[in-house]
Design a protein around this nucleic acid. Sequence first.
DNA 1: CAGAGACTCGAGGAG
DNA 2: CGAGTCTCTG
Length: 737
Amino acid sequence: MSLLEGLNPKQKEAVLCTEGPLLILAGAGSGKTRVLTHRIAYLIKEIGVEPWRILAITFTNKAANEMRERVDKLVGEGSEDIWVSTFHSTCARILRQDIERLGYSRYFTIYDAEDQKTLIRECIKELNYNEKNYPVGSTLGEISNQKNELISPLEYEKINRGDFRKEKYSNIYKLYQKKLESNNALDFDDLIFKTVELFTYNPDLLEYYQNKFQYILVDEYQDTNTAQYKLVNLLASAHGNICVVGDDDQSIYGWRGANIRNILDFEKDFKNAKVIKLEQNYRSTKVILEAANHVIKNNYGRKAKRLWTENEQGNLIELNETFDEHAEAEFVAREIIKQIEDEGREYKDFAILYRTNAQSRVLEEHFVKHNIAYRLFGGIRFYERKEIKDLLAYLRIIQNPCDDLSLKRIINVPRRGIGAVTINKVEEFAAANNMNFYDVIRDNETVSVFGRAATKLKDFADLIGALQIQASIGSVTELIEELLKRTGYLEELENENTEESKDRIENIKELISKAADYDNKEGEEASLEGFLEDVSLVAEVDNYNEGDNAVVLMTLHSAKGLEFPFVFITGLEEGIFPSYMSIVSEREDSIEEERRLCYVGITRAREKLYLSYAKSRTLRGQTQYNRASRFIKELPKELINLGKANKSSDPLAGIRQRNRILNNYTPYESALKNKIPAPKNITLDYKEGDLVKHFKFGVGTVEKISHAGADYEVTVNFPKFGQKKLMAGFANLKVVD
DNA sequence: CAGAGACTCGAGGAG
DNA sequence: CGAGTCTCTG
């Protein structure tokens, strides 16, 4: 039987166990995609399951596409009927069908993070709250957390009555949701939430999908949040044929609501669940795997497992301490060049991983200097660029005229002499008459209220009207070309004739070519809403192409699921990785999540792993001196080879480095003590006994102030978090009077 | 209404 | 240090 050929016994077992609940604990590099695809093929070819009865859910489009491709090869005809897609696109597809039952139209817009922030800013203003007290970012986080937990605005209000701050959040949440509805828009979290809601209020629909999907597979189960968990449970509860694949050690999305309990408690949730562990790794050398195992064993509450491999021993892990982040980047660049020149390697064999996107800049600089071909992921996504968002806003308003947010974005882009004053007047009028912006300006009678501005507004409404007609008769590509012509958007950029405007024009061309790809791919099925949906739901890494011969630069988070012969993990410093936020976090699990992230990073490497940290690092114009990351100290020294990175600025560095790394295994008394701010004149405006406020811990009493180098160590007692030792230069304590 | 220049303030990861 | 916001002037 060819479908089982080349699988190890555990993998075979996972393919053959088709009925009932199954948890596959798949360690890094243990061939889980292979198991999943063969399992799907086995269901169809051997068990005789109809392809359209299978639902396979992943987190990224890249994973979905890869699975789709491999299944197509194994199954052949009929495989296109299998639903292989991400959580978000699965939900979007279901909602396009039946969301009218929830009072939205099927032409709804999907808002991204930037749109969400704009909308929340509007809400805060409208409620007359101070953005300083309710920062957009944390407000959005609070709302997103509620949605991930399936808590509606009304429930949130009920739960938090009497909590001053949360009552404010509650009002924002309510208004925000109201605005989304009136704009006929959903945010990312709504895609899942609304689908669950749809099923909850419409048992007939739920039953339909329960019957349809007799076999459900979920990838990366450790990253599911409560809403996603609920969705899967609703669909699977009737027949119980649910197969989830995951690795609790790779759970790195707790901050966006992922609940690690979903995988840890699977056996409790589904009675008679079978568990299969895939522990043989086919990816990495023994050294790399050993290092990964050593780091992760410092976490508590894991499912017992230990990865092993038959691969060769391999190179030692190379550890480098550098003077600063420039020396680190320079070292990485030179090492890549050396490997290419001496060992015949290619650019695409290398990946540079870091904790935060801000770290990529210096690396880029040095790569440019050395002419190294690289591909940067993260930072500003293609679809987040200003000119692209502008054009998408046009497309959105054409598709969904209720979308006030998009309309306001482009009503004066390019400039049509419609300013803030006019926009405010129209908005007030619209609110008073319970209308959408576009309704007001497209109607001759209502628009005439606005006197001199009326003509301009009406012209704009007519423009949108004309483009709507174009949308109904032509392809998406033609629509974009027509809109560029009619609005004069491209012309304006051409007249500017700067480096920047040339860049923007290039991006617009790129968008047109993406639209053309979409039109070709979908053929008769192509539609504006389909294109906008695709665009909203692509992730940056989805565009990663193994064939491109370029060094890859990305965050550790983005690297999950990928592998490279050579991996550099940079910025291994206390306060960077693990991050400052995780060190001071009140969440018990947050350092453990950083450690899992480290584990993910290490296990991306096939042949050789480089770790590096800089003694000093300049961030936001301030230089900090951080100690080497605790994760480095968790590695066995016999696996480590000290590198010869540039330490020209300090001739004794070699000796110090050796002493420091090999002998300094003492655990940290307090993580915060590791941070020694740059020498600067610090004056404290508080003294012992004063009340001070910390951004995270709130108000507390200063108990002790002592010198610590150029800084002060301040001991503060916080009612909620207990006693904390903080560095004054870093903690930004404010006096409360 | 639009554009230039001053000013403030921020600590992370992403579909 | 740099993005994003605010203020002032033509």
